[in-house]
Design a binder for these strands. Structure first.
Lengths: 364, 364
DNA sequence: GATATCAACTGAACCGGTTCTTGACAGTCT
DNA sequence: AGACTGTCAAGAACCGGTTCAGTTGATATC
């Protein structure tokens, strides 16, 4: 059975251009363009004829030609700047990407992923993308105070979604007041709320000496967590929590945990900034013959699969990263269309209680 | 101190085109093009003058205009077709990407990442990419027998690197004989060698009842592992190994492990197709009061960070995924340049022995 | 000294679309 | 009948590069 009027196989031959369609339909190039883009200037009759011919020829638009006229490119940029060896370990990014694709996929938009070695490298990528109009908008993560990338992106006129809490309670003041749509909106997971939740839960279990193994100190979200921890500890009348900073890696997580557990007074609970470090902390506890959760309670952040792989399973501050990614993606799409987006926090954190937390040893 | 002849800030204004450079340098557009592309047709003197002017104006090439002339786009495509919820869990892809970027980054090539829900969706992405010339080449993973994607890519004329062992011992016969450069080379990690290694090690420890929790049955690399397992078991005169198929997820790994461990005769060693399933297997063993490695030895595949997070730490079949990614990336680059690449296996697998394997209980 | 050769350079065409300008024609109003 | 609409379509310019076909002037060859 021969295929009837199916789109022709693309095999081998040059693919049809708009001129081919025009010739085949017996009209001018411009008529074809109007018809294909659903614009006025063509009669209904010719319009449908042209569409039929285009379909039959298997015509597809050339992204390059459209981009030349300033149209959207269909690519969003994401530069990851953490050391490559850490990226494989953090389920966060893959889940974020997967959430973004949930939204971008149907819009026929892909994600351009680059891994940069340094901040200057990352800025070079932005410069190049902006100059070559290679992406419609970008995502910025791991923001620091007075982050040079933000000023650069503003100068380049490249729309961006900033995945970070603002530094000032008032909102991301550097780039427009909060509550007003902007071309560089900040969207953040509510780190402060998550931290408060974890701390109150531990306090309710009777813990008083609570420590924290934090991620990179200079990131805005790390600072937000730290501030929330301090404030909440004060409100609950707990001693000032000890905080160790790390680079999120397993190794530094182990070192920090060990130094906390051999210190005086030994904490009865530790909150970690990601799952990887919390998981390796369990090994340090085992090494020091400390039972979890009997003598030490552990809470991790992210609630990725890793929290369910350990023994005991980790109590974890849960973030719906996929949903977050979807929100980020729709913001990107709005920006790419030329519209503005409002800054704001995303969703609410929850606490997934598993087997790594229990009443404090004194109170037991 | 005012900046001297620095590249102008791109802020606000329209970025300079090649015509602007030509006007500023007092030469024709074509001369500028020759100079910038290091082609003959311009004297050394003018060449350096033009370059200086371009630099001073902050000129950057327009990707769109170049792509219009059929030049390379500077993007490689990667479509992931596994269910989104599994992607976050598999460190494999992130490590592969990070390795690829190690090579592609300096070449100023980005990676276009798409997540597809189904095989037809994935094929639609390829069609669109090919039609719009959006990528220079693509990577294909998780290949099945008579995979329709391969024929499609060949028809579309889209260069591709196939991350899969061939089905026939002779090589990827469908697309050119082995040992001959092709526009669709197959590059595979040596799954068979890894499996043989694991099996011989277990046999040396005295294990005879060895089972396997495999990944998706229809993938070529799964089949390669299965074949190697069967052959090697026969060669070592072991009873036929029991094999359970899964989708690589934690849940199915748990189910498969449980059914193996309550079956008769109970295996004394299990080989898993990834780290995630092996890690969750440890929980099943705990649930059934079986000590690892005392009563059960466990070997995982991939040797990602997960293998080091569990207790006991997992003995693992090691694959240098980052190096593999680098090899893949350079193959992509070669293809994008219009040259051909030879198919072949990648590197050698090793066994990273940790705490989840020990002598078999009978032999103990 | 006339001609062939060659490098250096220019102008124009081209890639595949979009959009502006112009013109033809039919229908309406005075 | 002539002027004025409005619609539909064709033609050309344009986006920002690359490349081809010529033109020029200088040098080499006979």
């Amino acid at each position: 059975m021969a295929p009837a009027a199916e789109p022709q196989p693309t095999s081998g031959k040059r693919r049809p251009t708009i001129s081919d369609v025009a010739r085949a339909a017996g009209v001018a190039k411009s008529a074809v363009s109007y018809a294909l883009n659903d614009k006025p200037g063509v009669s209904q009759e010719k319009r449908s004829h042209i569409l039929a011919v285009a379909e039959q020829l298997g015509w597809q638009p050339s992204g390059a030609a459209r981009a030349l006229m300033g149209a959207r490119v269909g690519l969003m940029g994401l530069v990851l700047n953490r050391p490559a060896r850490l990226l494989g370990l953090e389920p966060f990014y893959m889940e974020l990407i997967s959430g973004m694709q949930e939204v971008l996929g149907p819009l026929d938009v892909a994600l351009a992923l680059q891994i940069a070695e340094s901040l200057p490298d990352e800025q070079a990528v932005y410069r190049s993308w902006a100059a070559k109009r290679e992406v419609d908008a970008v995502v910025v993560t791991d923001v620091k105070r007075r982050d040079p990338r933000l000023a650069l992106l503003r100068d380049l006129g490249l729309p961006a979604v900033v995945l970070s809490p603002p530094f000032d309670r008032a909102g991301p003041s550097d780039f427009g007041p909060p509550g007003h749509p902007t071309a560089m909106p900040w969207l953040w997971t509510d780190d402060a709320a998550g931290m408060r939740l974890a701390l109150r839960y531990l306090a309710a279990l009777g813990h008083r000496r609570i420590a924290r193994v934090a991620g990179t100190r200079s990131y805005a979200h790390t600072m937000a967590r730290t501030a929330a921890l301090r404030e909440e500890a004060e409100r609950l009348d707990l001693p000032e929590p000890v905080i160790c900073s790390t680079d999120y890696s397993q190794e530094q997580g182990v070192d920090a945990t060990r130094s906390l557990l051999i210190g005086e007074p030994r904490p009865t609970a530790i909150v970690y900034d990601n799952d990887v470090m919390a998981a390796s902390a369990l090994q340090v506890a085992r090494e020091l013959r400390l039972s979890v959760p009997g003598q030490l309670s552990v809470i991790s952040w992210d609630d990725s699969m890793i929290a369910r792989l350990t023994a005991p399973k980790l109590t974890s501050i849960k973030v719906d990263v996929r949903a977050y990614g979807m929100r980020v993606a729709s913001a990107l799409d709005t920006l790419a269309a030329g519209a503005l987006v409002e800054s704001g926090p995303f969703g609410l954190a929850g606490l997934e209680v598993r087997d790594s937390t229990a009443v404090a040893p004194e109170a037991g």
